[in-house]
Design a binder for these strands. Structure first.
Lengths: 338, 338
DNA sequence: TTGAAAGCGTTACCAT
DNA sequence: ATGGTAACGCTTTCAA
């Protein structure tokens, strides 16, 4: 059996109250008692039970993390950043893969609640805002990362998706592209919507019309990118560039182009979003809009911990600046053969 | 405040014992009482506290998962499989990134113990076998996945790394390669060691000598693969094929070859190990030895849950068969120009 | 079929 | 400086 404070107290000839105090460094305890108790704890390899401690109203030092899918490199990198900082601050993180399904989300939240996590970091899209509101009512610290719920007052950490879209468009425009297609995720996803909005606005501002038939709404996987790009490129009039709303879709585009023997970037430029490991691994490597995933994850944890500690009541929305990372998948539009 | 069984009991006009029984479906409760209590729980949005329940000696329904780094696609995919099956069986998983550092491992284990997890799944290399032994003594269910500790009696789920190495060598040999280099991870990692052993044995059996100067021991990241390959390819006599002990290293090799304008696979074949998403995303795509990550993760969870439930005492070592997945990075060795 | 009460391992308040 | 004890929310045994 594991040792308890009773064992330690008995061995040290003191009360459990005293042991508790030395564990927590509270109250006034003589140096002698303190060191004696420490020695015995050491000898017994004593680890205080977080469970019992939590029951008395203290924290569980556990955070819930909702992501659509950790096997998606973007969320894997976010998860890593969050776990790192959580660990740094003394919190464990429980990982939950939601597949963006509201019913799974509700089940996970219910489980996390039963386990009395101290807060939940949400990186998954939620359709029903009621789910979030119910959480907020319970006064449970919540932070949204890489997702938005504009109608709900909740702490939020995002990249400026709109600006990212603008950056992408500006880059393509600068290279002389005018016939541009967009591969976007479901428009239920706020980030995807904003990226597209920024992109289109920048085109419009530049006086370049966007051809609606070149807008493809896909799921978020490589295969979706591939199929939709195949579709796009098999028509008579082709775009000279494609903006993919994330790296996974861009990988699919790359594959499609390769199948059709279309050379990237000389025949077709591709720009993507996220800058996960994938963007640096493809051939050609992907020009992409980078999100500072590590900083975002770290901030999300810092914020939630501040709320947990009660140091903070005001909710903020922190927007990081995205950055254009130029690699090999984009090039000047050459009109020679057109 | 959250509702407790006391609230429910009071409202229902019964004792907390009765409420507890209906929650757990234990003892004999009249249908009337049962449904009345259920109705009230519903109305109060009551969620029993796992914390309090755990304190009475029941399970926490939480598993610890130790991985070197979730942002490594291999472990991300393993983590996803484990979390899925865990959730399926009612367990949450606490993710821990160890960076393969024994000191971080010890700290994580200590934390998981304080939180009374029901078991720990270990996918990270551990140098000091004492760490594991101490855990086993505590009678805490442990499963090793994708790692081995031959000297410790612990439930283990692995792929046959040796056979995988053989498969890789056989493929290269069949393609006519004889000048083969190996990029391996630290030899402290059992899987890497075994892969190499199988590979070399197969070469030897085929009467092809392995040139020791073509063995590069690296870390596990893309950059390590790149540097070491650059090194390898900048000497006067070059190998015609490289066996990379994981996909990340292979990506690095691909990059190095590209920098040196060496064409894959016509000038140099590359074969790797794992078959993560990366293998299908590079250009050329990677011929690789696939591990059934999903099945392995699922089995690891099934096994640990059996131990938790006490249905099982014997420890087994389950070895999955790896599979050769031929893609574009390997080709016949052409002697024309040699 | 139901309930009273002890117990799980801590914390915190109030005494001493 | 230290200790007694109630309380946290639940499970379980034993009795009624």
């Amino acid at each position: 059996m594991k040792a308890t404070i009773y064992d330690i107290a008995k061995e040290a000839g003191v009360s459990i109250a005293t042991v508790s105090k030395v564990i927590n460094g509270k109250g006034r305890i003589s140096a002698d008692t303190r060191s004696a108790v420490f020695a015995i704890m050491e000898r017994f390899d004593f680890q205080p039970s977080v469970i019992a401690s939590a029951l008395t109203g203290k924290k569980t030092f556990t955070l819930g993390l909702l992501v659509p899918d950790v096997s998606n490199p973007f969320f894997a990198e976010i998860a890593r950043a969050i776990e790192d900082q959580g660990h740094q601050l003394g919190y464990s993180v429980v990982m939950c893969n939601t597949d963006n399904k509201d019913e799974k989300i509700e089940r996970y939240i219910s489980l996390l609640l039963q386990k009395s996590v101290d807060g939940i970091i949400i990186a998954t899209g939620i359709e029903k805002k009621e789910i979030l509101e119910q959480l907020l009512v319970k006064n449970l610290p919540i932070v949204l990362i890489a997702r938005e719920m504009p109608l709900v007052a909740v702490e939020t950490v995002v990249v400026d998706d709109y600006a990212g879209g603008c950056l992408a468009a500006a880059h393509l425009l600068e290279l002389g592209h005018k016939e541009i297609a967009i591969l976007a995720e479901s428009q239920k996803v706020s980030s995807s919507r904003e990226r597209m909005r920024g992109f289109r606005q920048t085109m419009e501002d530049a006086g370049v019309a966007f051809n609606e038939k070149w807008l493809k709404i896909c799921d978020y996987k490589v295969e979706d990118g591939r199929i939709n790009t195949l579709d796009l490129l098999s028509e008579d009039s082709r775009p000279t560039a494609i903006f993919c709303c994330n790296d996974l879709l861009a990988v699919g585009s790359l594959q499609a182009a390769k199948e059709l023997q279309i050379n990237i970037p000389s025949d077709l430029s591709i720009i993507s979003f996220d800058n996960t490991i994938l963007a640096s691994v493809t051939n050609p490597t992907l020009t992409t809009i980078a999100q500072p995933m590590e900083q975002m994850g770290k901030l999300a944890v810092d914020l939630i911990v501040e709320h947990i500690k009660g140091d903070k009541k005001a909710k903020q929305r922190t927007v990081f600046r995205p950055e254009l990372v130029i690699r090999e998948s984009t090039a000047l539009h050459t009109t020679i053969l057109q």
